[in-house]
């Protein structure tokens, strides 16, 4: 699993990458009450706004961590946004992306570097 400074996690799933937010981010946001997912097929560049989330406190954006095509989204979050709080690293994933430049993954943080970031 790799991480971004924006508190996202990325995990390889065949030739796709699964993207979610970390436990740390979910705890900071508080209970999620709304998730707006992109349409599958959307092509995004790194740092494009990909998902809108709202917690009991405020709205925020999840940015695309790499360039690529979003091929699948986690529809279960639409009716049950608190899945993100309950299982941020598992059932609370947001989307799967097909990277157009897999070398971008090399720039991401490993687990130790991410832990140091939030320490």
């Amino acid at each position: 699993m790799k991480f971004t400074e924006e508190h996202e996690w990325l995990e390889e799933d065949g030739d796709l990458i699964i993207v979610g937010i970390t436990d740390h981010a979910a705890t900071q946001l508080g209970d999620l009450v709304f998730v707006e997912l992109p349409e599958p097929g959307t092509v995004v560049s790194k740092d494009d706004e990909a998902v809108v989330i709202e917690s009991v406190k405020a709205a925020s954006d999840i940015l695309a961590p790499i360039d690529g095509e979003i091929v699948e989204v986690n529809e279960a979050l639409v009716d049950n946004p608190t899945l993100v709080n309950e299982d941020a690293l598992g059932a609370g994933w947001f989307f799967k992306i097909r990277p157009s430049d897999p070398s971008q993954l090399d720039d991401l943080l490993d687990e130790d570097a991410y832990k140091a970031l939030i320490a």
């Binding site: 508080g30 209970d31 009450v33 009991v56 406190k57 608190t82 709080n85």
Partner: peptide, 9 residues
Amino acid sequence: VQYPAGVLK
């Protein structure tokens, strides 16, 4: 602002 249970609970 909240306790460990969280705002919704």
